[in-house]
Structure formats: structure tokens, C-alpha cells
Design a protein around this nucleic acid. Structure first.
Length: 556
RNA sequence: UGCCCGAUAGUAUAAAGGUAGUACAACUGGUUUUGGUCCAGUUAGUCUAGGUUCGAAUCCUGGUCGGGCAACCA
């Protein structure tokens, strides 16, 4: 008997609505991005919520681009958004655009004017702002508030016809200039923008504001549950007001707390700034919290979906620890990624009693997490190997289970070796490690009777491939960059990217394919970068493995 | 100092008046040819003051703290 999983507050609402037969028990949600940037993991939360709710309750989800501001919106963003939603594993019912409704929205505005609930205002932006008052003081009407319906109708038509320049006039709702809710103090409905729109071209020179487009779009599509983030709570009375005054389908808005993650930012505006000012290379830079960045970094759709389930949904502000995201990708990749060996910071190890020129192939399973190991590959072994520099210490502490003069350790899938001696360069740095190997300790049929605590990865010098490896770390040095004083960019981590030009990787990795995740044993999960070529292999580190030694080391 | 939203371990999230639970993180120990995984365990929480009640994280009142609200952005 498994315990029933508890519902989040939105699931509770939907279940209640189905129970009471609201909208005939129908569930239709929508994901409404503005095509002015790339999707990030905060959007993933919203996507999982909207599509997940519909999936769970037998409904559907529309993808609707909220494209009412042509000065920031582009087709490039539309394409990336569609690709990202699909990649995350979701299929929308209809692909729609707020701009599809421009004609209808225009007639809604006319209807409002005819009810004397909207007027054309010639005031400047500043005049309107000051006349709105402050949260503690009511606003004052501007001179145009009392225009006749006929004059408003004529002026609005002329606005549409292009008779006035940008900013000369706006259409405002006539609601309540004294409302304690600032959004009800005669909000703007339409503004003039002589700019081509990515879909409607030059058909329009007036464009509706968010508040006059979003709710009505929901109503037109008969969205049953319109889910958005907390900052839209004060807009809800306005959302309802338009629907009531225009007598439209009663869509309802529900709000949840947006996702924040430590050591990164989630604002599209700020992310765009990082791109434009070259703090990162692009929207899909693997350090970015964008879907495309995470994808390039090696995150899987499943791990992101799982993350979104883990974090839950509520109305309280939150700042999720990055370690939870990392847990989710490790959990996924541990079960699925094939193991390979790669030496990131190499030092040469010579097996003095292994015949020169000899080589053999050793078997190593692809995935120890799965019964049968998902097969194995043969790894070439020879007298000279690369091992990790920090797998050797000149003065090893007691709990160091790797190499130091006199110490023994196992080479993964190969033999136990004993460190006999080291060679130093002119600066006194160790540049070669000399070992003897124990022939009877061969992996798979070890008759040596020797037990060692440490196992190390390695690559045969003669057979190794060279690769560039990019190590990523958190983008910011502080938990919450946007709450710190000053510009958020002051808190960028200068070491968020470390490039290793000369790593050595096992030959089988020549077969690595884009989108295939590997575990480089003892080092982390890695994936081929899109800039990689057969002649110049490039791997991105998705995430490190958990490492008990780094912690132990610091306490010694 | 107007209106709105919120407050449960370090971080999130449950408990719909009846044993404060789960995950991540942290810490112990065990297993291990990855110092990974896995397994077992430990630490740690109801913002505050009153009230209602046999019984309050939950209901009521006051306070405190955090966030939001005035863009021709969404």
C-alpha cells in the first residue's frame, strides 16, 4: 500500500472544480511566454505545472505567445521557446498568439468606449503617472477623461489609422482613480507604436497592453485555469473586470510563487544583459539557467521535470538550493550514463616491471548500476599511463588511499600497483611516478590476496586521445545576487568557467555522440559540446560526483 | 504610512482541530575494483503575544518580519 501523494494547492483547486462540475469538469491550461528571450528553468516550473495539471486531469494545454509588444519580440525567440518546450517533453494542443486576437481585442476596446468605460487620453506618460496619485493618495482625472463617447470612438479609430505619432495618445479604461489598487486607476489599454510586428507586420500601429490582452485571450480560448506568478495578484481584479464588462468566458487566474535558485538569477532582463555584455557567450552558455544552457551543459529533460516535482508549488517566496538541482541530474545520470575514464590533470605513471612495447585490452562494464553492466568495452593498457595528478601525494596523510611512495592502489579494471619512486624536474616538482604492478591482481581474476582501499582511473599514454574539457561552476558568488547591494553583475563568479586544454581520454570516447551523457569515473558527468569536432573533442562537465575526499582533505 | 500576498528544521514542501512527516543539505557508521552508487542511522522546525477548544501549525484578534503594488513592460 503506497501512501497517496499530497496535492499542491492548485491540484486541490482543480479537483474541487472538477467535483463541482465547473466548466463541465473540463481542464484547459495555457503556457503564455512572451517571445522576448529564452526560456529558463523558472519557466520549466510553469511548463511542468501547466502541462502537468492538464495531463493529470485529462485536459489540454495551449502554447500561447503573449506577443503584444513588438519592440522586444522576435521570431528567433518563438522558435527557441517551441524547441525548449518540446525538448522538455511536452506537446501543446494549439499554438496560438495574442496577436491572433488583435482584431477582436480592438472590437472589445470599442465596446468599452461605447459603454463609456474607456477614453482616449492625450496626456504624456509623465502626466498620466503623476495624475495616478500614489498608493496613499488618490489620483486626479486628466482633462480628457470626460470626452464624449463619439469623440473617443473617432480618436481611437484615428489612432488605429496611423494619424498620430508614438506616444501622442493612449486608450485608457475608465475605472476608479481613487482605487487602493493602483492597477484599477484607469489603466492603459492601447498605446501607439509604429513598429512592425513579428507576425502582423505593418497591419497595426496600436498595440494592446498586457492587461487588455492576457485575460481576454484566456477567455477567447476558454482557458479554465489561468496560472501565473505572484506579481500578477494585484492584476486579478482588473482581469476579472474586463471579463465581466465584456461578458466573456469566465476564465480565472491563479497565482503561485516563481522559482528562484541559489547562486543564479532568473530574470530574463538580467540574463539578456549577461549575454549582451558578454559575461557569458550566449543564451545557451552552459552556465546559464536557461533551458538551452542546461541542455548544453548535459542536463536531461527528465532530470529537470523531476526537479520541478521535487520543489513543490506554493505561494510563499522561495530560494531553492542549487544542490537539489544537482541531486536530480546525478540521480538520473547515475542510472543511465555509461562510465568512461578521462584524466583531467595528467601526470605520467610508468610501470617499471611491465614489458616495454607490450599492451593488452582490459574489459570494463559500461554501467555498473544495471544488471549485466549494459555490456563492456575493451580498454588498452600499457607500460606508460596517465593518472590524475592529485591521486599522488608526496607526504600522504593517513587516510589517503591513493599513491605515495610505498603505497598501493588499484588501477580501475586493471592491476594493483605499488609506488616505488618518483622523478622530479629541475624545479623539484614530481613529473613521473614509477610503480611496479602485481601480475596476479588482474581485475576479474585477482589471486594476489592483496586488498587495497583506493581505486584510480587511468588512460594509456600511447592510446589516449586528447580533449578539451570545460569545467563549470556557479555563475554567481552569492546566494541571491539580486538582493545584494549594487549591480548584480558585481557578484559574478570570475571562475565560473575553467578550460582544460589537454585532458586525456580513453579511445572509445572517439565514438561519443552529441546528447549522450558519460560519467568520467571519479570526476563527474560529461557531455560533448556543440563546438566539438572529431579533430578537437570538447566535453562539458555537467556536474561533479559527490566527493567525500575533498571534505575529508580540508579537515586534515 | 494605503492596498495585497506570505511566514513549519539550513533549503524546500506536507499535515483540511487529534502522533509535526518527506526530500535535499549536513553529520555517523556499513557495503563497494568509482572516496561515486547503495544501505542504516543522527542532528534539526510550527514568527510572536493573547484568545476559542478536552485538544491549535491549522480557527479568531493584535503585533513582528519578509515580499509585491504607481513602466505607453509582461
Amino acid at each position: 500500500m503506497s501512501e497517496e501523494k499530497s496535492l499542491n494547492f492548485l491540484e486541490e483547486i482543480v479537483e474541487k472544480d472538477i467535483e463541482t462540475g465547473k466548466h463541465g469538469g473540463r481542464v484547459l491550461t495555457r503556457f503564455p511566454p512572451e517571445p522576448n528571450g529564452y526560456l529558463h528553468i523558472g519557466h520549466a516550473k510553469s511548463i511542468c505545472l501547466n502541462f502537468g495539471l492538464a495531463q493529470k486531469y485529462g485536459g489540454k494545454t495551449n502554447l500561447r505567445f503573449d506577443d503584444t509588444n513588438p519592440s522586444t519580440e522576435e521570431t528567433e525567440y518563438v522558435d527557441s521557446i517551441k524547441a525548449d518546450v518540446n525538448w522538455l517533453g511536452f506537446q501543446w494542443d494549439q499554438e496560438l498568439y495574442s496577436s491572433d486576437y488583435f482584431e477582436q481585442l480592438y472590437s472589445f476596446a470599442v465596446a468599452l468606449i461605447k459603454k463609456d468605460l474607456a477614453y482616449v487620453d492625450d496626456s504624456t506618460a509623465e502626466e498620466i503617472a503623476t495624475a495616478k496619485g500614489t498608493p496613499t493618495e488618490p489620483g486626479d482625472p486628466t482633462p480628457n477623461r470626460s470626452r464624449s463617447i463619439e469623440e473617443n470612438l473617432k480618436l481611437f479609430e484615428e489612432m488605429r489609422a496611423g494619424k498620430y505619432p508614438d506616444g501622442a495618445k493612449v486608450l485608457r479604461a475608465k475605472i476608479d482613480l481613487a482605487s487602493p489598487n493602483m492597477h484599477l486607476r484607469d489603466p492603459l489599454l492601447y498605446r501607439i507604436k509604429h513598429i512592425d510586428h513579428h507576425r502582423t507586420g505593418s497591419n497595426w500601429c496600436i498595440y494592446p497592453m498586457y492587461d487588455f490582452a492576457h485575460g481576454q485571450s484566456d477567455a477567447i480560448e476558454e482557458i479554465t485555469h489561468s496560472i501565473c506568478t505572484l506579481e500578477f495578484i494585484p492584476h486579478r481584479p482588473l482581469y476579472d473586470w474586463f471579463i465581466n464588462q465584456l461578458e466573456l468566458f469566465p476564465s480565472h487566474q491563479f497565482e503561485f510563487a516563481r522559482l528562484n535558485i541559489t547562486y543564479t538569477i532568473m530574470s530574463k532582463r538580467k540574463l539578456l544583459q549577461l549575454v549582451n555584455e558578454k559575461h557569458v557567450t550566449s543564451w545557451d552558455d552552459p552556465r546559464m539557467p536557461t533551458i538551452s544552457g542546461l541542455r548544453r551543459r548535459g542536463y536531461t529533460p527528465q532530470s529537470i521535470r523531476h526537479f520541478c516535482e521535487h520543489i513543490g508549488v506554493a505561494k510563499r517566496e522561495n530560494n531553492i538550493e542549487m544542490s537539489l538541482l544537482e541531486f536530480c541530474i546525478r540521480e538520473d545520470l547515475n542510472k543511465s550514463a555509461w562510465r568512461r575514464m578521462a584524466v583531467l590533470d595528467p601526470i605520467k605513471l610508468i610501470i617499471t616491471n611491465y614489458p616495454e612495447g607490450q599492451e593488452e585490452f582490459l574489459h570494463s562494464e559500461n554501467n555498473p548500476e544495471v544488471e549485466g553492466g549494459e555490456g563492456s568495452r575493451d580498454i588498452p593498457f600499457s607500460r606508460e599511463l596517465w593518472i590524475e595528478r592529485d591521486d599522488f601525494m608526496e607526504n600522504p596523510p593517513k587516510k589517503f588511499f591513493r599513491l605515495g611512495v610505498g603505497l598501493m592502489a588499484r588501477l580501475k579494471s586493471a592491476y594493483i600497483v605499488k609506488c616505488e619512486d618518483v622523478v622530479k624536474d629541475e624545479h623539484g616538482h614530481v613529473c613521473e611516478i614509477h610503480c611496479s604492478y602485481i601480475p596476479e591482481s588482474k581485475s576479474g581474476n585477482d589471486t594476489s590476496g592483496i586488498h587495497v582501499k583506493g581505486t584510480m582511473h587511468w588512460v594509456s599514454v600511447r592510446h589516449a586521445l586528447t580533449a578539451e574539457i570545460r569545467l563549470y561552476d556557479r555563475l554567481f558568488q552569492v546566494e541571491d545576487p539580486s538582493s545584494e547591494e549594487g549591480d548584480f553583475k558585481e557578484y559574478i563568479n570570475p571562475n565560473s568557467l575553467q578550460v582544460l586544454e589537454n585532458a586525456y581520454i580513453e579511445p572509445d570516447l572517439a565514438n561519443a555522440k552529441m546528447g549522450e551523457n558519460y560519467q568520467f569515473m571519479r570526476k563527474g558527468y560529461f557531455v560533448l559540446d556543440k563546438e566539438s569536432t572529431p579533430k578537437h573533442l570538447i566535453f562539458n562537465r555537467t556536474v561533479t560526483l559527490k566527493d567525500a575526499w575533498v571534505k575529508l582533505k580540508t579537515t586534515l
